[in-house]
Design a protein around this nucleic acid. Structure first.
Length: 564
RNA sequence: UGGGGCGUGGCCAAGCGGCAAGGCGGCGGACUUUGAAUCCGUAAUUCGUAGGUUCGAAUCCUACCGCCCCAGCCA
């Protein structure tokens, strides 16, 4: 009687995949072909990754193809620097567009011919209105627009004028080519939208072959059509543009892809807008597009994020039409989860506090076997040197601790990971009263970290042998903004108002275990009890520089906060 | 007051008329030589609100409320 349904648990389902499936079923399309159409005017950020994984992921799921197409229709904003970085980022994500790399600018000739065709059909005209006048004639959200006085020029005149626009006879802004649709449409996009504007500016690919450039709406659908795209997936912002997308394709009678819109990613505590990210770069608020605090792919990569973690994140957030804000904690969870499995463990002291173990022989050095990764037996182990003088983390000692503090304090005993139990017997302070050194004793019976008499200690500390440790620089990062939604601005406020002044902390007096001398740029580690770190490109021969990718979850910090 | 969308626990998100998945976060506990990881347990008598249809609704209908987007010769 209890015939439970069998979970097929196949690919993730969402409304777009359902629609695509239905289109295949109904025969509207017999294959799936998508595209990712970035404008080369900035670096890709995590929000773009969501779009890419939808575009490309769906093509893969349905055994289809996907293209990379640069939407380079505005020479004043675009640059090759960006096309290079975009390709690098997409490849890093693991996608291969093979030979299907295109540029909207490849289609300028075809687009021009189609525009001529629309003019001949009486569906497009050259308009002499200035930008301001166009705006006035457009009407408002509640009032219809009024026809341009140039709306009814003859086909011959339009053809002549358009030809001369192209030939460069007119200055920027003096004329446009407009589609003749409906100035009274409740959808403002249909009130005779501009198809071409005059821009006397060299284009990064076509040079000065053109001085008229197509608008997004005129270029996009036709480009999709030329490439045989089946499903043109985009941001909710383009929902209002779909009628126009459809209109152009219908007038031309060419292959007609289906546009489907989804909600773009909004991530808490950061900003995902090329415009604002560029501003932070230009104003020097961050070190560049690849600053590890940036939500750009190059920033995340430098920070130590892996592409698999980013993919896991995209799977986790889903695809829907609801405007939502994803908690950045989800992203952090994804990278922790992966690094927990893969990152070798290592000991590194960020803020060193000297500890002298008084009953440990002056010249003795022992090697302790340390597991490289407790969750991965295959990872093996390494040796870590121990001696009389060591460094521990300043935060691991409190002179007058609360009972909930499981670490070192006068008279308390803790375990040094993989080494011995030590007990704090004395505190050395400087003139200002600051603790500069601890005196301790160790119990030789606890070698390896456990006591033969079975006594327990609550705390286990990481440490490093003073004589053997290697100095390093560590860069700690925090959220770029102090509030969840930096864009949720108060009246007259700038989003930079919410910039977190403490998003970067550079520690130059760190000490890490000697096994790290051979670490190279990009290597990732877990500094036990602290977090995940990777070697930054700034590292040089003899000087290690680590970026904190993400902290370990910190229950103690939570307890402190709660009790504070 | 035009048009287009969207409203399910703190945050994402399934659900497609038959009796509210899952994940993140939180909380409680177990375990622990990382206060990590792991492991259990835990929260919507309720799906924006109000009506209606139905034996039965988050799912259908109506009205209302709220939020987002659109008046670039940006994309």
């Amino acid at each position: 009687m209890n015939d439970e349904k069998i979970e097929t648990n196949a690919r993730p389902v969402d409304f777009i995949r359902e629609a695509v499936e239905a289109d295949l079923q109904s025969g509207r399309f017999d294959r799936v072909h998508t595209r990712f159409p970035p404008e080369p005017n900035g670096y890709l950020h995590i929000g773009h990754v969501k779009a890419i994984t939808i575009d490309y992921g769906i093509a893969e799921d349905f055994g289809g193809l996907y293209n990379l197409r640069f939407d380079d229709t505005n020479p004043v904003k675009e640059d090759v620097e960006y096309v290079d970085s975009i390709m690098e980022d997409i490849r890093w994500l693991g996608y291969d567009w093979e030979d299907r790399l295109y540029y909207a600018s490849d289609y300028f000739g075809q687009l021009y011919d189609w525009a001529v065709e629309l003019i001949k059909q009486g569906k497009a005209y050259v308009c002499d209105l200035s930008a301001d006048e166009v705006r006035e004639y457009r009407g408002t959200l509640t009032e219809p627009g009024t026809d341009s006085p140039y709306r009814n020029r003859s086909v011959a005149e339009n053809l002549d004028l358009f030809e001369r626009m192209r030939a460069g006879e007119f200055p920027d802004g003096s004329r446009t080519l407009r589609a003749k649709i409906d100035m009274a449409s409740p959808n403002i996009n249909l009130r005779d939208p501009v198809m071409y504007r005059i821009i006397h500016e060299a284009h990064h690919r076509t040079g000065d072959a053109w001085c008229i450039y197509p608008m997004y709406d005129w270029a996009h659908g036709q480009s999709d059509s030329i490439e045989g795209i089946s499903h043109s997936l985009c941001d909710l912002a383009y929902e209002d543009h779909r009628p126009l997308y459809d209109w152009y394709l219908d007038q031309l009678g060419i292959h007609h892809p289906r546009q489907i819109e989804f909600a773009r990613l909004v991530l808490s505590h950061t900003v995902l807008s090329k415009r604002f990210l560029r501003r932070m770069v230009e104003e020097g608020l961050v070190s560049g597009w690849d600053d590890p605090r940036m939500p750009t792919l190059s920033g995340l990569r430098r920070r130590g994020y892996t592409s698999t973690a980013i993919h896991a994140f995209c799977d986790m957030i889903g695809v829907a039409k609801r405007n939502s804000m994803v908690d950045i904690a989800m992203l952090e969870y994804c990278i922790r989860q992966e690094l927990n499995e893969t990152a070798p463990r290592v000991m590194g002291v960020l803020r060193p506090l000297k500890v002298v173990i008084e009953n440990y022989p002056e010249d003795r050095v022992e090697m302790f076997d340390a597991r490289n990764n407790p969750v991965d037996p295959e990872a093996g182990s390494r040796e870590v040197p121990f001696s009389r003088v060591i460094y521990i983390e300043r935060d691991d000692f409190l002179e007058d601790p609360p009972k909930s503090f499981h670490r070192l304090a006068p008279g308390r005993e803790v375990r040094l990971r993989y080494a011995y139990f030590i007990t704090c017997t004395g505190v050395v302070k400087d003139e200002s009263g600051e603790v500069v050194e601890l005196r301790c004793t160790y119990d030789p019976e606890t070698r390896g970290g456990s006591a033969p008499d079975g006594r327990k200690v609550k705390g286990t500390l990481h440490w490093v042998s003073a004589a053997h440790a290697v100095p390093a620089e560590v860069r700690l990062y925090d959220r770029l903004f102090t509030v969840e939604d930096p864009m949720g601005l108060e009246e007259g406020q700038d989003f930079l108002h919410y910039l977190n002044p403490n998003s970067l902390e550079v520690l130059t007096d760190c000490r890490v275990e000697p096994s790290l001398v051979s670490a190279t740029v990009g290597d990732r580690f877990q500094f036990e009890r602290q977090g995940y770190f990777c070697v930054d490109p700034d590292a040089a021969e003899g000087w290690l520089v680590f970026n904190q990718t993400v902290q370990l979850r910190d229950t103690w910090a939570k307890i402190q906060q709660r009790d504070a």
